[in-house]
Design a protein around this nucleic acid. Structure first.
Lengths: 244, 244
DNA sequence: AAGTGGTCTAGACCACGTA
DNA sequence: ACGTGGTCTAGACCACTTG
C-alpha cells in the first residue's frame, strides 16, 4: 500500500489521504458504485488512526465523491438517475415539482469543432466533435431545445446506430459505456430570443424569450467532457437555485 | 450553562450542540461578528469533549453560520460585502468577472401587500409592505431593474428620509440596522420580455429578453424577510452557477 | 456473530495570532 | 507565554446490515 509523508513540513495526513482516494477514482482503479476498503482497513494499510481516515472520507462525502452506508461500507458515488435529476437538473414547474423530461434526438453528426467548442472543451483546433440536437418534452409539452457537443474521441461510437437513439439521462450512459463520471458542472444562464429554429421545435413564436443554459460538465479531475446548450421555455417552468 | 440530554435515545450530542449554538444566534444572544466561546470552554461548560464541540462547529462552518480563525477563535458569520457578492450575487460579465453594481432608488413606498407578496413573505392578507424600485448599473450601464418587497414591520423606518437613499448592499443594512441576517435564499429564474417600463429604465427595446430572478431571502430560522424581483439584461452579463 | 460506519472520549502536539 | 483553532491518536461503545 502507498505510503504517506509524515514529516511535519508535508501536507496534513488527511489531505494526503484525500488525494490518494481521489486518484484511485480518477484513474479508474475504483469505479462508480464500488465498495472501497473500510475505514479500519484503510487506517491499518496507511498506518494512521481511523479518525484520520474518517476526516478524509467525510470531506469526500461532502463533495459527493463517496457515499457512506451505515453497516455496509463506503462506496464510490454512482451518478444514477436520481442524482442526475437532483444535482444537474434545475428546471421545476411552478409548483416546485421536478419531472424528468423525455428526449428526442433531432440530429446527430460528427463535425469539426467550432472555435468556441474547442475552447470550452479544451480540444485542439479543428478537433472532431459529436454534435447532438434534441428536444425535450415535459408533460408532453416541448420545453427544451438542446445542443450537446462531445469530443469525437471517445464518443463517436454513439453514432453507430443510424437513428442515434439515446437515453434521457446521458450522464448514466457516459458512466456505463465510457467509464466517464460527470462530477461537477459550470452553468451560465442568459435570456435570449427564440430563433425561427427554436420556435419551430418548441412550437412557439420566434422572438419569445427563452432561458439559455450553457453548461460545461467536468470530471472529478476537472477535465471538460460535455458542452451543452439548452434553450428552455419558461412559460410553465423555471430554473430553481437555492443558495445556502 | 444549558444541559444536554445524554440518554441514548436522545439525538447525538453534537446535533444538540448545533441546535444550541443556532438558537444563541437566532435569538440574538450572539450577533454577527461576535466571538463565541472557545471549543475548550464550550466543552467544559457542556461537559463533553472538545472533539464533540468541534464536530458541531464544523457543521456550522460548512453552512456559513460560523467562521473559524486559527489562533483567534470562532465567530458568528458576518455577511459583509464580500460574502454578499460571493454568495448572493451571481451576475458576472462574459469574462467571469464579478463587479459590484451601484444602485439608484426610483421609487419607495408603503403599500398593502399583493396576494403574491403576502404569500411569499408569509404575511397576513393586507399586511403593509415596503416596496422599493431601483435600477442597478454595472460599469455605468443600466443592467438590472429591481423591485424589492419588505414587511413594513420593521422596515418602514427606511422611508423616513424622503429621497429614500439606500446603500448598494442591502443585506448589510438589514444586519446593522435591524439585526436581521440573511442566511439563505431561494431563487427562481425565468426568461421574460422587457415591458415598456423595463425598457425605459434599462434603455433597451420593449420585448427584449430579460433574465428575471425572483429571490426570497431567509433568516437562519428560515423566516422569509425579503422578496426581490430582478430583471437583468444579459447582453453583457450572465448568471453563473457552479454545480458540485 | 462479525463487520461496517456513527458517536464520543481524553489526551497529545502543532500552527497561528496576540500581548 | 498563552490561548486559539488544526491535526492526530488509541480506544470505547452504539446502530445498522449481512451471513
Amino acid at each position: 500500500m502507498e505510503m504517506l509523508t509524515k514529516n511535519k513540513a508535508a501536507a496534513p495526513l488527511y489531505m494526503q489521504i484525500i488525494e490518494l482516494l481521489v486518484s484511485k477514482i480518477s484513474s479508474g482503479e475504483w469505479l462508480p458504485g464500488d465498495l472501497i476498503p473500510s475505514e479500519v482497513k484503510l487506517a491499518e494499510d496507511l498506518d494512521v488512526s481511523q479518525g484520520t481516515v474518517r476526516t478524509a472520507i467525510t470531506e469526500l462525502v461532502e463533495n459527493n465523491v463517496l457515499v457512506r452506508k451505515q453497516g455496509k461500507g463506503t462506496f464510490v458515488s454512482n451518478h444514477d438517475t436520481d442524482r442526475a435529476l437532483f444535482h444537474f437538473f434545475h428546471l421545476t414547474d411552478n409548483n416546485g415539482n421536478k419531472l424528468p423530461p423525455d428526449s428526442q434526438v433531432l440530429k446527430c453528426r460528427e463535425k469539426k469543432a467550432t472555435r468556441n467548442e474547442a475552447s470550452k472543451l479544451q480540444l485542439p483546433k479543428d478537433a472532431k466533435v459529436l454534435r447532438i440536437d434534441r428536444v425535450r418534452h415535459i408533460m408532453a409539452v416541448p420545453t427544451i431545445a438542446e445542443t450537446i457537443t462531445l469530443p469525437a474521441n471517445p464518443f463517436s461510437e454513439l453514432t453507430r446506430n443510424k437513428d442515434c437513439s439515446l437515453p434521457n439521462m446521458l450522464y448514466e450512459l457516459y458512466e456505463k459505456q465510457f467509464s466517464i463520471t460527470i462530477h461537477s458542472a459550470e452553468e451560465k444562464l442568459r435570456a435570449v430570443a427564440a430563433t425561427k429554429h427554436d420556435a419551430k421545435i418548441l412550437n412557439l413564436e420566434p422572438g419569445t424569450p427563452l432561458l439559455e443554459i450553457e453548461r460545461i460538465a467536468l470530471t472529478l479531475d476537472r477535465t471538460p467532457i460535455e458542452l451543452r446548450i439548452s434553450r428552455c421555455s419558461t412559460k410553465n417552468h423555471h430554473y430553481q437555485n437555492n443558495l445556502i
